[in-house]
Amino acid sequence: MVFITHCWKNVRRRLERSARLCAALLVCLASAVLASTVDLTEMRTERTDGALVLHTTLRLELGPAVEEALVKGVPVYFVAEAEVLRDRWYWYDRKVASVTRYYRLVYQPLTRQWRLNVSGEPLSSAGLGGSIAQSFDNLSYALSMIRRQSGWRLTELSELDPDARHNLTYRFRLDVAQLPRPFQIAAGSQADWSLSLSRNLRINPDPVR
């Protein structure tokens, strides 16, 4: 009888341990599914009107923690950066151009609208001057404006050496540094706020040549 009781206790402990492991695994899987994600579905350059322009389309989804912060009226900032580099075999690649777009997304409870500011200069709650602002009835419409970055003028074609090879580096991220301090601390342990990507693209030579 003592032996059977001892064995049953061991089995019960193993079952309890397995149940805890399964629960932890389910939590991790749920967090991975619900976390914010970003990826590129399109990235191409085009020569038009004497300039090199960039077209990108993002697959951007915000996780529950980010959406909850937005609904509470916390502004969330995104940054898109593009650099044009010229290959140099004898030294570091030369930076031909560097451009940045800043996005500020916030929910306005009084009007129940989402407001998006876009600017070529850094944005903050204290300085939105010079930015283009639009209001949307829902979050999906506001995010669609961030997801599609079309006709982004990078540099004049005269700045590109026709005899050299050029590369484009594109980066997109959620700017955690712009969040209120309590959210910055929480962001360090929540996957929802770890949202960034970086991609490289070889710029095709001018087909006219």
Rank of each mutant, 00 (worst) to 15 (best):
H6K: 06
H6A: 13
K9D: 12
K9Q: 13
V11M: 14
R12D: 14
E16S: 13
S18N: 10
S18I: 08
L21F: 10
C22A: 14
L25Q: 09
L26P: 03
L26D: 15
S31R: 10
V33N: 08
T37R: 15
D39E: 15
T41E: 13
T41F: 04
R44G: 00
T45R: 00
T45P: 00
R47D: 00
G50K: 08
L54A: 01
A65S: 15
V66N: 10
E67Q: 14
E68R: 15
E68C: 14
E68L: 14
E68A: 15
L70I: 10
V71D: 06
V74N: 11
Y77R: 13
A80C: 13
E81Q: 05
E83D: 11
V84A: 01
V84K: 00
V84Y: 01
D87M: 05
W89G: 04
Y90T: 13
W91M: 09
D93R: 02
V96M: 03
S98K: 04
T100L: 01
Y102E: 02
Y103D: 01
L105Q: 02
Y107P: 03
Y107A: 08
T111S: 08
Q113N: 05
W114K: 02
R115W: 06
L116W: 03
N117V: 05
V118S: 04
E121N: 08
L123D: 07
A126H: 09
A126F: 07
S131Q: 04
S131Y: 04
A133R: 08
A133G: 05
N138A: 11
N138W: 11
A142N: 03
L143I: 09
M145I: 03
I146A: 02
I146S: 01
R147M: 11
R148M: 09
Q149N: 15
G151D: 15
L154N: 01
T155E: 00
E156F: 05
S158I: 11
E159K: 06
E159P: 01
D161Y: 10
P162E: 14
P162I: 11
A164L: 04
R165Q: 08
N167K: 01
N167T: 01
R171V: 00
L174W: 02
A177G: 11
L179K: 09
F183D: 09
F183L: 15
Q184P: 05
I185W: 11
I185V: 14
A186P: 02
S189A: 13
Q190Y: 06
Q190I: 12
A191I: 06
D192S: 09
W193D: 10
W193A: 12
W193C: 10
W193R: 13
L195D: 12
L195I: 12
L195P: 08
L197T: 06
L197S: 05
R199E: 06
R199V: 05
P205M: 05
P207T: 10
